[in-house]
Design a protein around this nucleic acid. Structure first.
Lengths: 199, 199
DNA sequence: GTCTATATTTCGATAGAC
DNA sequence: GTCTATCGAAATATAGAC
């Protein structure tokens, strides 16, 4: 194992982490390549060598975000005992500071979505990611309703899509004004969506 | 009525319209002041004279957006006869091209939200706007359920917040992949949210 | 109030040494 | 692979004529 490879990997990791932070808090176009390199304690030369530029860096960031967010959904949720607790955990994850990306992961979520909505190449990647989310949330969702005696879901993935939609839209409003929505309101809404699809 | 005032008003209007289009389709930081002026068939001098710069232009845009979006919610919706039709109209408005802002109004929605999430001054403005939306949607929402024999809503504004949340989150996913959510799914979700709060 | 022209700064990207 | 130095392009903002 060469030391070169370690340093290379760390440089790459540092640059992506710095990009995630800065792109989220200031926006992609508002951040210069030099600022990212400086925050990562590297130089623009290293950035261009690794990613070819700011765009390549953003693409790499999306890829890592893809993997990471797939895991996030399931963590914490499975620790809860009943449906109510699981839904509460989902909402908590949506608004709580995140371990790796801090309290700005929600900003990154929308920053990436905006780039995808404006660029077809990004859109395909992100669309796949959302499909993956719906799929991975749909499975446990169907199981939970069974546990609660609500019957099975007719369309687990479609319901998962609605659940994710409500979480995102509620988080938007919560970010602007935390008093505008209570946790109970959101959880009640999530439950209504789920029960509406349970037979 | 002086011709000077007319020209002044038109210049202002042109600049705001061009800004709305460009900020939505390319993003605020990706658009130069000169590009906005050029699209409005004016010059940067006029832009700086009216708004003091790009930031001032964005603020003026938000204000106009505030008024305009308040009216949009109620139009089209009241034309429908029953709850199902009204919910379908709401969803249609969320994803359909808009008269004044084209098919990019959804992008502007999130662009403005991102700026608000990053800037406290913007946040206050936008928070007020969302509160206004919840209020103006909550009233008819409560009336609709009465018409349908569903009883009255317990918390019209909170339910309106959930309805708006679902519309925004669903529109996000729909924009990335129109096949991911059917209109029936979304309308069913909206109905579930409303019925969940009706007693 | 609006336009032309421009000063100043900053950005993205590259070349070459190590 | 990484860094230093730098070029050319583009952005913000201003000054002055009309």
């Amino acid at each position: 194992m060469a030391t070169q490879d370690q340093r290379k990997a760390e440089t790459r990791s540092r640059l992506i982490a710095a990009a995630a932070d800065l792109f989220a808090t200031k926006g992609f176009h508002a951040v210069s390549a030099e600022a990212v390199a400086e925050a990562a304690e590297r130089t623009t030369g290293a950035l261009y060598s690794h990613f070819g530029g700011k765009d390549g860096l953003l693409l790499a960031l999306v890829d890592e975000w893809l993997e990471e967010s797939a895991q996030r959904i399931n963590t914490g949720v499975e620790a809860s005992a009943d449906l109510q607790g699981r839904l509460r955990s989902l909402w908590g994850d949506a608004i709580a500071p995140h371990e790796e990306y801090g309290d700005s992961w929600l900003l990154l979520e929308f920053e990436l979505w905006l780039h995808a909505a404006r660029d077809a190449a990004f859109a395909e990647d992100l669309a796949e990611r959302y499909a993956q989310r719906r799929h991975e949330l749909g499975l446990p969702l169907g199981a939970w309703t069974g546990d609660e005696g609500l019957g099975r879901l007719r369309h687990p993935e479609r319901t998962a899509g609605l659940v994710i939609a409500l979480l995102l839209g509620a988080a938007m409003q919560y970010r602007l004004d935390p008093a505008s929505l209570s946790s109970d309101d959101v959880v009640a809404g999530l439950r209504a969506l789920i029960e509406g699809d349970a037979k």
